[in-house]
Amino acid sequence: MTGWAYVRCLNGILAREGLRFLHQRERFFGALVRPLVWLFIFAAGFRSVLGVSIIPPYETYILYEEYIVPGLVAMILLFSGMQSSLSMVYDREMGSMRLLMVSPFPRWYLLLSKLIAGALVAVVQVYIFLAIAWFWGVQPPPLGVLLVFPALILSALMLGALGLFLSSVIKQLENFAGVMNFVIFPMFFASSALYPLWRIRDSSVLLYDICRFNPFTWAVELIRFALYAEVNWLALLGVSGALLVFLLAALYGYDPGRGMMRFKQGG
């Protein structure tokens, strides 16, 4: 296999994920409506209830809408990562995952390609959301909108890798509802997506510590700083480390010696 063969394989997987995304319009609108509801309705309602003091990267008082946009961006990435893992479980049950796995390319490369494809699809959704938010009055510096791209990719890969790992553990599609309750919601609410962590510390120090070590918080903060053309090095380190851990766990989960053992047993 030459290097170009690897590129063609990646291209093929990107094209397939892109086409699937285009063909599943409901998935696209669903992914977009969720954060928009939070932005248009939830943020409007809580604007006066939740005051936000001046905290980095913000240099002045901001509206609540502006505060939650990075959290909603991360929310899109989180749901997209989980959607992607849902489709892996579906593909596995339907059999199309087998096609991917019998390709002569190394398994780690195939899974990584699938992860990259999922991340790119998620980032497209984020930019559409940011464009709508712009018209709603949430206007980060244009340079930040550009510079946030690598932060989005890294966060999307991290959350996608988590989804990939979960898909290797989940035996059936029906079990996926549990992921919503035990992974997505706790990750989202125990983070700095909707409220600054100092507000949580005022209520519970334990919860504050949990939020601080939640990889989703790191993703939110990485995106928040990048949107304002700054780098949160701690968050960058956290997201990179979490990506590595989740990716290794996913590769272990899909190892033919164990992960695939979970496939439906056949005659």
């Binding site: 063609r8 093929g12 096609l99």
Partner: peptide
């Protein structure tokens, strides 16, 4: 959800 042609192209990509 993909066409017959797209399915075949995908397979070709998976074999480089």
């Amino acid at each position: 959800d993909l066409s017959a042609l797209q399915n075949l192209k995908y397979h070709c990509a998976l074999h480089g």
